[in-house]
Each structure stands twice: as structure tokens, then as C-alpha cells.
Simulated scan of single mutants.
Amino acid sequence: MGNAKSSAMSKEILEDLTLSTKFTEQELSQWYENFQKQCPTGRITPSEFEAIYSRFFPESEAKSYAHHVFRSFDTNDDGTLDFKEYIVALHMTSTGKMSRKLEWAFSLFDLDKNGYITKAEVSEICHALFKLIPAKERSRLPEDENTAEKRANKLWSYFNKAAGGRLTEAEFIKGIVENEDALHLIQYQPQE
């Protein structure tokens, strides 16, 4: 009888997620049940993740940004997201502390996972982020932010680095925290 519920979340994962997120056991159990329904294999593939992301941004081209977000969430680099990776990512991006969100943002920008961010990496992520902005919203952007390249240049300028320089995680977080305008350049919030 001990294995009657084989699709239930393991007690170890439940305890770990309860300690590492702000979600309750009941919330985690509900998330798990929904995850199992949506992903019967117990894993989310990049294409499934892109499809999910595209539903959140129906008027945008979300594929390239979703690719980068997926890469940053796939902490064990196995090409899929399991439930634990999914929940930790959900927690970090929705209810986590600002410092944790900025740590995640650093991992998003650190394309090659070498512990540094270059201007080229900033540019690539800014291009992916810019594609999330619907055309009607792009026309209302300030002159110095109305293209992906301008946004990347503006963001890079907040870090006081030469074009060939590179940023550590601490420098990235400090640059964002010390410049209020920088925060909106590393994320997209749909206008209502």
C-alpha cells in the first residue's frame, strides 16, 4: 500500500520546496497536480515552454525570450524543466525578494554561464526582450529606448564599463539597484 500514489510528489521534494519558497504544502500540491496534468512526462521541453510563454504574450514574438528564460531555469542543463526547477523559477520570478530576482536576471543575461556578462550578451537579451513589446507599445517608447540596440546601449551605460568590458553578478546587481530606470530595461511589463 505504500506506493498507492505513484504520481504524488515525494516528501523530500515537498519539504525542500516548502523551505526554499514561500509556497505552502497545499499550494505546492496543487501546483504539482496541475503540472502533472499539463506535463504527464514530469518534464517541460523547450518547445512546450515556448508555447506556454507565447500564451502570455499573444501580441508579441516570445520564442527567443522564452528560449533564454528556459535556459536560465534549467539549472541542471538537461534540456528540460522538472517540477522542482519549475517551482523554484516561479517563486523566484513572482514572489521572491528583489535580490533573488536580480540574481536570476544575471543568469538570464549570462548566456555562456561563465559568471560574467558582456555587452554582446546584454544586446542579445535586450533584442529578445524588445520582441516581447507589441508594436503599438513600441511607438510610445522614449527616443533612447525605441529600438533593441538603443535599449542595450542605455542599459550598458548604467554599468560604467567599456564596450569590451564584462560585469560580475555583484556589478550587475549594483548597477540595477543604483539606477531606477535600469530595472525596466531588463524586464517587460505589459501596459494596461
Rank of each mutant, 00 (worst) to 15 (best):
residue 119 K to V: 00
residue 119 K to F: 15
residue 119 K to I: 00
residue 120 A to V: 08
residue 120 A to Q: 14
residue 121 E to Y: 05
residue 121 E to W: 07
residue 122 V to H: 04
residue 122 V to Y: 01
residue 122 V to L: 04
residue 123 S to K: 14
residue 123 S to V: 03
residue 124 E to T: 10
residue 125 I to G: 04
residue 126 C to R: 02
residue 127 H to P: 00
residue 127 H to I: 05
residue 127 H to T: 09
residue 127 H to D: 13
residue 131 K to E: 15
residue 131 K to Q: 15
residue 131 K to S: 13
residue 132 L to F: 07
residue 133 I to Q: 06
residue 134 P to G: 11
residue 134 P to H: 12
residue 135 A to K: 14
residue 136 K to D: 15
residue 137 E to A: 08
residue 137 E to H: 13
residue 138 R to S: 09
residue 139 S to C: 09
residue 139 S to N: 14
residue 140 R to N: 15
residue 140 R to S: 15
residue 140 R to A: 14
residue 140 R to V: 07
residue 141 L to K: 08
residue 142 P to M: 11
residue 142 P to D: 12
residue 142 P to Q: 12
residue 142 P to K: 13
residue 143 E to T: 12
residue 143 E to Q: 14
residue 144 D to L: 11
residue 144 D to N: 15
residue 145 E to C: 12
residue 145 E to P: 02
residue 145 E to K: 10
residue 145 E to M: 07
residue 146 N to F: 02
residue 146 N to M: 08
residue 146 N to L: 03
residue 147 T to P: 02
residue 148 A to C: 11
residue 148 A to P: 07
residue 148 A to S: 15
residue 148 A to G: 12
residue 149 E to Q: 12
residue 149 E to C: 00
residue 149 E to I: 01
residue 150 K to Y: 05
residue 151 R to W: 01
residue 151 R to F: 02
residue 151 R to C: 03
residue 151 R to D: 04
residue 152 A to C: 02
residue 153 N to R: 12
residue 154 K to W: 09
residue 154 K to R: 15
residue 155 L to Q: 01
residue 156 W to E: 05
residue 157 S to V: 01
residue 157 S to I: 01
residue 157 S to D: 13
residue 157 S to L: 03
residue 157 S to T: 03
residue 158 Y to G: 01
residue 158 Y to P: 05
residue 158 Y to S: 04
residue 159 F to G: 03
residue 160 N to V: 00
residue 161 K to W: 06
residue 161 K to E: 14
residue 161 K to Q: 14
residue 161 K to G: 02
residue 162 A to L: 11
residue 162 A to R: 14
residue 162 A to S: 14
residue 163 A to Y: 07
residue 163 A to I: 00
residue 163 A to W: 05
residue 164 G to E: 15
residue 164 G to M: 05
residue 164 G to I: 00
residue 165 G to M: 05
residue 166 R to W: 08
residue 166 R to Q: 15
